[in-house]
Amino acid sequence: MSTLPDLEAWAIFARVAETGSFAVAAAELGLSTATVSKAVARLEQRIGGALLSRTSRRLALTTLGDEIATRALRLLTDAEALEADMLDRTAQPKGLVRMAVPMSFGQQQVAPLLPGLLLQYPQISIDLHLGDEVVDLVGGGFDFALRIARLENSSLRARRICNVRLMLVASPLYVAMHGLPAHPLELQDRPCFGYAYQPTANRWAFTAQEGEQVTVHLSGPLRSNNGDSIKPALLSGIGLAALPDFLIWSELQEGRLIEVLPDWALPTVPLSLVTPPASLRPARVTVTMDFLHDALIKAPWAAAPS
């Protein structure tokens, strides 16, 4: 038996595992279905175990296949990145870039940047996935994600862009009817909207400029995992909310919202570009990440990383 790994068979198996179909994998790879099937069979014979369970209606990974599919996909991704990197040194960045971005942030901050990106790199195409869930970058086939969170230790790589500040705000109508609180503890007796994207949506921790710290337990008539859905109630004067600065920046500049307790700060949260652990990255991904980083770091709401 050859001492060299059957890299072609591993790559073909990775695409079959990802698509769940010999025919779809064959189409994506530009091969015949028979060639794809033979490559997987060759790999199974080589390692001495079945990777796929085949029936007339269904194709599924075996336990062994499921265990190694992610590693095989990583092998394919690294090889594609290596080849793309070599090609991109002499060619215009081109191809599909898949990114995952939080819903409101993507709509308000990322989507308006994409026309400039696509004009600058006309051979790049973007697949933008919007959602507040934490996606599996490797399993989902994403090139990178933008995340607003304190990142847990993992094999993923993170490039911090800036800090996102949580700001306590109210509408002028609310202030006219109820006045401004003078201390965070007064919020316990006022209606406050819970932003569930925060890890402690019903508990706000304030720090004064001189260092005093106060934690406030809240209650209110509305709680949501999306900040945009809180803004109508906030603007109507029903209550107060602590929302990310990028989400309310325009309303603050226009005077439709007022910052409350400006001498007390809520925690900041880093905005980061997060990528899979592969060291090689196609130029199309690199230029997209650099473009977004350079644009977002200049945003008027962006706070310098601490």
Rank of each mutant, 00 (worst) to 15 (best):
R89V: 10
T90C: 12
T90F: 12
A91Q: 13
Q92T: 08
P93N: 00
G95A: 00
G95N: 03
G95F: 07
L96P: 04
V97G: 01
V97P: 03
R98L: 04
R98V: 05
R98D: 05
M99P: 09
A100Q: 11
V101M: 04
V101E: 02
P102M: 08
P102F: 08
M103L: 15
S104N: 15
S104T: 15
S104D: 15
F105L: 06
G106Q: 05
Q109Y: 07
P112V: 01
L113H: 01
L113K: 05
L114V: 06
G116Q: 02
L118V: 03
L119A: 13
L119G: 11
Q120W: 01
P122W: 04
Q123W: 13
Q123T: 10
I124Q: 05
S125N: 02
S125D: 01
L128T: 00
L130M: 04
D132H: 13
E133S: 09
E133L: 11
V134D: 14
V134S: 13
V135N: 03
D136C: 11
D136K: 08
L137F: 02
L137I: 00
V138G: 12
G139P: 04
G139I: 06
G139W: 01
G140A: 05
G140Q: 04
G140R: 06
F142R: 08
D143W: 04
F144C: 04
L146I: 07
I148V: 10
I148F: 07
A149E: 14
R150L: 12
L151V: 05
E152N: 15
S154N: 06
S155N: 12
A158H: 10
R159I: 02
R159L: 11
R159H: 09
R160Q: 13
I161P: 05
N163I: 11
N163Y: 12
V164Q: 15
M167F: 13
M167C: 15
L168G: 08
L168K: 12
S171F: 05
S171R: 10
S171I: 00
P172M: 03
Y174Q: 08
Y174M: 11
V175C: 00
A176N: 09
A176C: 08
A176M: 10
